[in-house]
Nucleic acid binder design. Structure first.
Length: 351
DNA sequence: TAGGCCATCTGGTCCT
DNA sequence: AGGACCAGATGGCCTA
């Protein structure tokens, strides 16, 4: 599910946690994931104080143990008494572990955020959830590798279908939004007896259709709301905005009205430079005739796109071709990626 | 209000 | 022993 970005999360600890954790650490928690330097310093101070206390208590501890030697030894595993010192040590250990765990999770979230930026349909305001980011990334990798494997450029619908496999409705809508497509047109019809993620019998209508099924889904994993296309969840486009050059190809595909859509920043998945997403520059009617090909690219790349050399998409003139150089070409990609990009181009231009 | 998502804490396990 | 990793529990926030 896509979620709009909200304020930093706050947390309230359980009674036990409150008992164990210092006020300073609780303050840090209130600051949430974006805890600033001040809070971290406070926590460090707190840890320092606790460690000092610990040293003092160690002496106490030794005294207690000496006292214990005068008593008769008990059998069985020696159960250490939770002395004040041990309690303090425990607290310090836990606080350190908590801090490490927080950092670890922040690192994980940072990595996830990086992933969000390189999968299609990145938006700062309409963030994909973690699970949806991973699903979309998996689909994206699969779709791109399928392009490599087959050596053919897939048609738009197949590509989008592959991207949206197993995704929730909101995410599907988001992807559709990036493409300015109506999700109903590229997702299989839902039938009562068939899992919504499985393509219907007629799904092969698109030439070059990706015969993709999510491993997780084929394994029978629960995925209740994903991939269904309730008309009420259709992607909505900003009222009054032009469709760009998609319009002549996708009559009835594009959605005409709806609440405002918050456009993704980068890399939005768009089709061909002619209708670079969310620029909504009017395209002359004559331009529509120049190209029947589609390409997917990141808006950040800025390139205007050009007609594909791979023809018009065969039997289905509405389903154009994806241009590989624009699948991958957006600012910020590494040298390695550019190299790969060039290799992809070589493959496609040789074929 | 229920459900989804998230951050955090926590204890267990494994590894160095 | 200490750190990394993991999964369960908990509670807050947000949206339909």
């Amino acid at each position: 599910m896509t979620r709009s970005v909200r304020g930093e999360h706050t947390s309230v600890e359980s009674d036990e946690q409150q008992e164990l954790c210092s006020p300073a650490s609780r303050e840090t928690e209130r600051a949430g994931a974006g805890a600033g330097v001040e809070e971290e310093e406070e926590e460090e101070d707190q840890l320092h104080h606790l460690e000092e206390d610990e040293e003092e208590d160690d002496e106490e501890d030794e005294e207690e143990e000496e006292d214990g030697e005068n008593k008769p030894k008990r059998r069985g595993p020696k159960k250490k008494k939770m002395t004040k010192a041990r309690l303090q040590r425990f607290k310090v250990r836990r606080m350190k572990a908590n801090a490490r765990e927080r950092n670890r999770m922040h690192g994980l979230n940072d990595a996830l955020e990086s992933l969000r930026k390189v999968v299609p349909c990145y938006s700062k305001t309409q963030k994909l959830s973690k699970i949806e980011t991973l699903r979309l990334a998996k689909n994206y990798i699969w779709a791109l590798s399928e392009v490599l494997r087959s050596g053919k450029a897939p048609d738009l619908m197949s590509f989008v279908q592959a991207l949206c496999k197993g995704l929730s409705q909101p995410t599907t809508n988001l992807v559709a939004g990036c493409l300015q497509l109506n999700p109903r047109t590229f997702l299989p019809e839902q039938t009562p007896d068939m899992p919504t993620h499985l393509p219907p019998a007629g799904a092969a209508a698109y030439p070059g259709h990706f015969s993709y099924q999510s491993p997780g889904l084929t394994a029978g994993l629960p995925s209740p709301p994903y991939g269904t296309m309730d008309p009420s969840h259709i992607f909505h486009q900003v009222k009054g905005q032009p469709y760009g050059s998609l319009e002549p190809f996708f009559d009835g595909v594009l959605v005409s009205d709806g609440p405002a859509f918050d456009p993704p920043l980068s890399p939005p998945l768009s089709i061909n430079g002619n209708f670079s997403s969310f620029k909504h520059e009017p395209v002359a009617a004559s331009d529509y005739d120049k190209s029947f090909s589609f390409s997917v690219h990141y808006g950040g790349g800025g390139a205007g796109g050009h007609p594909s050399v791979y023809g018009s998409g065969g039997a289905n003139p509405r389903c154009g071709e994806l241009q590989v150089e624009q699948l991958m070409g957006f600012d910020g990609h590494s040298h390695h990626e550019r190299l790969m990009n060039a290799q992809l181009n070589a493959i496609f231009h040789d074929s």
